[in-house]
Computed example of a mutant assay.
Amino acid sequence: MRLTLWTGFWVFLVDQATKYLVVHALGLMDRLHLDVIPGVLSFRMAWNKGVNFGLFAGFDMRWALIGLALAISAAVLVWIARDGGGRMARISAGLLVGGALGNVIDRVLYGAVADFLNVTCCGINNPYAFNVADIAIFLGAVGLVLFGGDKAQPRRRPGHDGAGPRAKRGTKSP
């Protein structure tokens, strides 16, 4: 569980730091667009009031989306706490929870999620923007699908070799 919480903490911190840096320190809120690597990476200010790609942005879903993100985060943390999962499952859970909480903070503070990363390629104009939290949520969800079934090996007590009342039947002790 510790790995999940630390991963979530660092994702949350990096997400909020990058949003502050780009939106406020670089003034993207006023500039609206800034080329970083022309033709490949730019910062485009977008306030996402909906879900992915701005879906349902016309509806006032702020508090419902905050509640949903918190409920999913809590469910993932409970699941990891109970079942453990392997190392990659715990990291994936931290990515998802840290990203979700980063976007929750945006919705509480601004009423929308601050999206600013825009990647284009090969002359195709990508109209969508995203943020570090979105990347973490995506990677965390994919990771939980791929690694969520892994079970961590049960922890053995120091000095306990498995022999005793729970030893396999039909074997003899020396």
Rank of each mutant, 00 (worst) to 15 (best):
R90W: 10
G84W: 06
K49W: 09
D115I: 09
I91F: 13
L95W: 07
D150K: 11
L41D: 07
L77P: 08
F12L: 14
F138N: 09
F43S: 04
D60T: 06
C122T: 12
L5S: 02
P127K: 13
D134F: 08
L146N: 03
A71N: 04
R156S: 13
V14G: 00
I80S: 11
A163F: 12
V76G: 06
V36E: 01
F147T: 03
Q153K: 14
F147H: 07
F12A: 02
M1I: 04
A25T: 00
A17G: 02
R87E: 10
F138E: 01
M29I: 04
A71P: 04
G164K: 11
G27T: 00
F116S: 03
A69K: 01
G149K: 10
D35A: 14
G84E: 14
V76W: 07
L26N: 00
H24K: 01
L21W: 07
G27N: 01
H160G: 06
I124Q: 15
R156Y: 08
L68E: 02
A100L: 03
G159F: 11
A46H: 09
L70M: 07
V51T: 14
R169E: 14
I91G: 04
S73N: 02
F130H: 05
Y128I: 12
D83L: 15
L28G: 01
N125R: 15
A46T: 14
G85K: 14
G39M: 10
P174V: 05
G94F: 13
A74V: 11
A25H: 00
R155L: 12
F9E: 01
G50H: 12
A136P: 09
A112F: 12
D15A: 02
G58L: 08
